[in-house]
């Protein structure tokens, strides 16, 4: 009797493990320039651009995930993780999705992290608290998180990155970049940008990327600090204004007061032959220009 009970319990345990560790291994056809939509609550969505045909989906569904719904039509594929109602906050899904390189993506998660590598179409990526990470030369990128970081590497098209309290980190980018946070920080390292619009309310901005020959940078903060690392030999017109912050310039003239009797500093100068335009403005945050 005891032996029978033990076997029964073992069978239940195995069933439980199986239930908790369901794996996904699916393929679906998709046009080379098709669009893939993914919706997941918790876990991870990892998308890789590949040269293969169609879409390959692998991964793991934890207990609490009701099902993975995959539906397609024409140029479009939809992948949706549905949780059991009783465990609305409990189940995580970890998905790795290979899509044609020229595909476009529309991904929405709650706490799941999103990473996209080597997909060249239009990327629309949104998470509430997860991290969003993009690598590769997508045509356009719109990526946002509320409290997670947004990290972009080697983007080349037009990128609009947003977070509220998370950080935006951009490495070796080119093309156009818009970055906006409230209390998070913005950090731009390497690369040459045609345009960069960066704004924070209380977060700091660190910019160690240069403008292209006719590049336009507009960098604004309310109370955060702005630090820009300027490459030797840069050709740019600088315009820097602050209401009550300080300006420190290691590469040219000193700032002037805008009012003899009140706060306000401004600094305008041309480095080299000009060409690019860099405008920096703060309310109370300090601004610093320095060389490497």
């Amino acid at each position: 009797m005891k032996k029978t009970a033990l076997v029964f319990l073992m069978a239940l345990a195995v069933a439980g493990v199986t239930r908790a560790d369901r794996t996904v291994n699916e393929t679906r056809p998709l046009a080379a320039d098709g669009r893939v939509e993914v919706s997941n609550i918790s876990g991870e969505v990892k998308v890789i651009g590949w040269s293969g045909d169609g879409v390959a989906i692998t991964g793991l569904l934890e207990d609490g995930v009701e099902e993975l719904t995959i539906s397609s039509g024409g140029n479009h594929l939809s992948i949706e993780v549905e949780l059991e109602r009783r465990t609305r906050n409990g189940g995580s899904a970890y998905l790795t999705i290979k899509v044609p390189k020229a595909a476009s993506l529309d991904i929405e998660t709650v706490s799941a992290n999103i990473s996209v590598d080597g997909v060249l179409g239009e990327l629309d990526l949104e998470s509430v608290s997860g991290q969003v990470e993009i690598s590769g030369e997508a045509r356009t990128v719109e990526a946002s998180s509320v409290s997670g970081d947004v990290i972009a590497t080697s983007t080349a098209g037009s990128s609009e990155l947003e977070s509220v309290s998370g950080n935006i980190i951009v490495r070796h980018a080119s093309g156009r970049l818009d970055a906006s946070v409230v209390s998070g920080n913005i950090e731009i390292e390497g690369g040459a940008l045609d345009s960069f619009d960066g704004e924070t309310v209380s977060g700091s901005i660190f910019c160690a990327a240069g403008p292209t020959d006719r590049g336009r940078f507009t960098i604004e903060t309310m109370s955060g600090t702005i630090e820009m690392v300027v490459a030797p030999g840069i050709n740019a017109e600088f315009s820097i204004e602050t209401y009550s912050g300080s300006i420190k310039n290691d590469i040219g003239p000193s700032p002037k007061r805008t009012d003899d009797y009140g706060p306000g500093r401004e600094l305008r100068f041309t480095a080299g032959s000009g060409g690019a335009r860099i405008s920096i403005e703060s309310f109370s945050g300090s601004v610093k220009l320095r060389t490497n």
Binding site: V146, S147, V182, S183, V201, M222, S223
Partner: peptide, 24 residues
Amino acid sequence: PETWSVVMENLLVIDNAIARIETA
């Protein structure tokens, strides 16, 4: 609650900024 808190705190950050600008 975490997301609500982040949204509220950051609305407060913006409100504080608005208050400081208006004072100026």
